[in-house]
C-alpha cells in the first residue's frame, strides 16, 4: 500500500555528510507533468523499496537542454548543460538514473564533451539490475497474469543507444504475455514527440504519428501499452483516447507496472 516516502535532495544529503548510491535525475516532464509525475513517484517507490540510497536535485535540477539542442539551438543547450554539469560536478555525482530517455541520452553521450562524465542508466536498466541482484522482488500476486502487454521502444533508448533488452527483461518478470508490434526494436516507429516535436504542432500531413503508432499497438489487442519515456507515454495515451479505448487499454510506464506488481502503489 501507498506509504509516505521521504525523497531527500542532494543538498540535504550533503548537509548530513552522506553520499547517495545514485542520483535520480527526474527531468522536466517527470517533475511538472501530472501524468509523468506518477511515473516519477513509481520510480522513487521502487528505489526506496529496493533499499537504494538515492537523492534528487530538486530545485537545483534544470532542463538538460535536449529539446533546445534537437531544435538546433546549440547555445541554449550548452548554457543549460554547463549549468547542470556545474551542479552535478559540485556534488561529485558519479552515477545517475533517469526515467527519461532524452535526459539519459544527452547526459550519457553529449555531456562528456562539456566536462560532465557520469555513468548514466535508464530506469529500466536500473530496475533490471535490481531484479538481477535480488534487491527487488515482486510480490507473488498475479497482477498481470494472462494480460497482454506490448512495449513501445523509445527512439532515444532503442535506436539512439541500442537498449532493447533491459525493458523487455523487466517486463518478463510480470508473468504477462509480451507481444511485439511489427515495427519494434531497431525498426520501432517513433511516437511523434522527439526532436522537439513535443513542443509544436505537427507539420501538415494526413495523420498524426502517434495515431499511426497507437493503431499498430491496438491491432495486437493489448491490455497494456508499456512505455519507457514520459513523452511516449503522453503520445500513446492521447492515441488511445483518440480511439476511445482508454477504458480497456492502459498506457503505463514500466516503472508503474513494476511498482504495481510489487504492491508499492
Amino acid at each position: 500500500m501507498s506509504q509516505a516516502i521521504h525523497v531527500p535532495t542532494m543538498a540535504e544529503m550533503v548537509a548530513k555528510g552522506e553520499t547517495p548510491e545514485v542520483l535520480f535525475w527526474v527531468g522536466c516532464s517527470g517533475s511538472f507533468d501530472d501524468r509523468a509525475k506518477k511515473i516519477t513517484k513509481a520510480i522513487a517507490r521502487i528505489l526506496t523499496h529496493a533499499g537504494v540510497k538515492f537523492a534528487v536535485l530538486g530545485a537545483e535540477e534544470s532542463c538538460t537542454g535536449d529539446p533546445a539542442k534537437r531544435a538546433g539551438n546549440e547555445f541554449l543547450y550548452q548554457m543549460q548543460a554547463m549549468q547542470n554539469i556545474m551542479v552535478l560536478n559540485g556534488y561529485d555525482i558519479k552515477h545517475i538514473v533517469t526515467g527519461c530517455p532524452h535526459c539519459f541520452n544527452i547526459m550519457k553521450n553529449e555531456y562528456p564533451e562539456l566536462g560532465g562524465n557520469y555513468e548514466v542508466v535508464h530506469h529500466t536498466q536500473f530496475i533490471n539490475q535490481l531484479i538481477k541482484d535480488g534487491r527487488l522482488k515482486l510480490s507473488d500476486g498475479d497482477t498481470f497474469k494472462g494480460k497482454r502487454i506490448t512495449f513501445h521502444d523509445p527512439c532515444y533508448l532503442g535506436r539512439g543507444n541500442d537498449v532493447y533488452e533491459a525493458p523487455r527483461a523487466v517486463l518478463q518478470q510480470l508473468d504477462a504475455e509480451l507481444v511485439e508490434m511489427r515495427r519494434c526494436k531497431k525498426q520501432g516507429l517513433c511516437c511523434g514527440a522527439g526532436g522537439a516535436q513535443m513542443f509544436k504542432e505537427a507539420e501538415p500531413g494526413n495523420k498524426e504519428v502517434n495515431i499511426e503508432r497507437t493503431e499498430e499497438a491496438l491491432e495486437l489487442k493489448p491490455n497494456v501499452i508499456a512505455t519507457g519515456c514520459p513523452f511516449c507515454n503522453t503520445m500513446m495515451t492521447d492515441g488511445v483516447k483518440n480511439f476511445e479505448k482508454e477504458g480497456s487499454v492502459d498506457v503505463k510506464d514500466i516503472a508503474e507496472l513494476i511498482a504495481e506488481a510489487a504492491d508499492l502503489l
Binding site: 527526474v26 522513487a44 530538486g58 530545485a59
Partner: peptide
C-alpha cells in the same frame, strides 16, 4: 529551466506529495 512555463522552484513539488 523547463520547456514549459512552470516556476523552477516547483520542480521538487512531487517529493512533498510523496
Amino acid at each position: 529551466g523547463a520547456p514549459w512555463a512552470f516556476p523552477a522552484s516547483d520542480r521538487g513539488n512531487w517529493t512533498q506529495e510523496m
